[in-house]
């Protein structure tokens, strides 16, 4: 007997009906989080989902599935049924899997439900570092080639993109990149003096900056940040950054491509309401994230632009394993 038939029979016996959009969700939804428990993707997803559940009238069971920089979770969700019962709670990096040689799938296999928020990169330094601003750091790098230790989180991570951006705008910088597992451990190392400078996400470093345990050098954005109004923008030191900014990592909820439109709409509505919930907005604002809450064509467009810009930036900095061209990712502006 086929699996579906038994399922239908039992479900019928229990008085429920199978997968029709009116009754969606008829069972619990699995939300697969790409990163480990306690990370920022995890925290964001666990705080928005309960609000979305209220609107949805169903349960989303969140599970962390880690490994291979999130590729395991992505492949798992991409390979599951497109019935709206398996969702991916992801961050920005899958858009770089192809060019970084980490996998052959990215968000093009998915329909974005909601791109929740984006982070702002900021360059922070150890308090003992012999410079106090971005210009001072550049001078130090020029005078002490190879001596500046800059934190990184592996190829394709936020720090690697920021470093690539700096290399492109300022010319190749002679620094030593020390790899860490994530910006949390790297910022810990920064405070202990194991690294001098770290391009981090504002949210991860804001408490440290407020407490004076690390010093901010420059914010990588085009507009002054309300949370840290005194920190200069990197564009005020070099106009060249305007080409690439604003840029930042983001968090989003995705369903496999082929999920019925009405289910996508229902999920979209739920997560849009969740993202707009005052508690969530306040929480994100406190951590220095910029709310986005976009979906549909707008989200697809955002993803495509993000991928083009970042993939080519990394390609030009010589950090990619394969050219974006091989995957049909056009150079921005072409």
């Amino acid at each position: 007997m086929s699996r579906k038939l038994i399922g239908a029979l039992v479900a019928f016996g229990l008085g429920a009906t199978v997968a029709s959009a009116q009754d969606y969700p008829a069972k619990e939804i699995q939300g697969i989080i790409q990163w480990g428990a306690g990370g920022s993707t995890d925290t964001v997803m666990r705080s928005v989902t309960p609000h979305a559940e209220e609107v949805l009238g169903g349960t989303v069971v969140l599970q962390n599935m880690t490994g291979a920089v999130g590729a395991i979770a992505l492949n798992h969700v991409a390979g599951s049924d497109a019935d709206g019962y398996t969702l991916l709670m992801g961050a920005e990096n899958p858009l770089l899997y192809k060019v970084m040689g980490l996998g052959d799938k990215d968000y093009s296999e998915f329909t974005p439900i909601n791109i929740l928020a984006r982070g702002t990169p900021i360059l922070v330094a150890n308090n003992e570092a012999p410079f106090d601003d971005y210009a001072g750091m550049m001078e130090y790098i020029a005078n002490n080639p190879g001596e500046l230790r800059i934190g990184s989180t592996g190829p394709g991570g936020v720090p690697s993109v920021i470093t690539a951006m700096m290399d492109t705008v300022e010319g190749k910088l002679d620094v030593t990149a020390v790899p860490y597992d994530g910006d949390g451990p790297a910022l810990t190392a920064l405070q202990g003096g194991a690294i001098d400078v770290m391009p981090a996400v504002l949210g991860a470093s804001i408490e440290g900056i407020r407490a004076g345990s690390m010093k901010p050098l420059a914010i990588f954005d085009v507009a002054q940040n309300a949370k840290l109004p005194d920190v200069p923008l990197v564009t005020s030191f070099n106009e060249g950054y305007n080409t690439y900014l604003p840029w930042g990592p983001f968090f989003g909820v995705f369903a496999p491509k082929g999920t019925p439109d009405d289910i996508v709409a229902k999920l979209g509505e739920a997560y849009a309401a969740g993202a707009a919930h005052p508690d969530f907005v306040e929480l994100m604002d406190n951590r220095g994230f910029t709310m986005m809450g976009i979906s549909g064509a707008e989200a697809e467009d955002f993803l495509a632009k993000w991928q083009q810009g970042t993939a080519w930036l990394l390609q030009d900095a010589g950090l990619t394993k394969a050219s974006p061209e091989d995957f049909g990712i056009a150079r921005p502006g072409e």
Binding site: E207, G208, R210, L283
Partner: peptide
Amino acid sequence: FIHGLNPGP
């Protein structure tokens, strides 16, 4: 952090 506190120094 979810409960509205800002863990940090």
